[in-house]
């Protein structure tokens, strides 16, 4: 399977990464090579194999409904590139 530039652009949009035309060009070649390599997986018959989304045989890990101490708002906002009062601020969302 290969990947065309339109797909790369769509995927880059989903990943919210702006690609310059030269980057797209370069990426297209690199992804082509990588996907070509990855294609070897299609040689295997995996129909009967269970997917290992987890390698650990553990399940049902839960926490009790006990409150902990939250961060102070100042601490939560300490790293914010832009804030207003106790809020994080982002460019206006137009719906």
């Amino acid at each position: 399977m290969s990947i065309d530039k339109e797909t790369i652009n769509h995927v880059a949009h989903l990943a919210r990464i702006e690609l310059q035309p030269n980057e797209l060009e370069k990426l297209s070649g690199e992804l082509h090579a990588i996907l070509g390599f990855i294609d070897k997986l299609s040689n295997l018959n995996v129909e009967q194999v269970k997917p290992a989304s987890h390698i650990l045989p553990i399940s049902n890990v839960l926490r009790e409904d006990q409150p902990h101490i939250s961060l102070f708002p100042q601490k939560a906002l300490e790293n914010a590139p832009s804030k207003k009062g106790n809020f994080f601020s982002v460019p206006k969302i137009i719906e």
Binding site: M1, I3, I8, I17, L41, L44, V49, K50, P51, I55
Partner: peptide
Amino acid sequence: ILGTFALSHGYYDAYYLRALKVRTL
């Protein structure tokens, strides 16, 4: 971008799901 592609609609089974299965092997 590669990872986004591997999870994207129409490619998930061929890439991501298949990879999880080979991981089992």
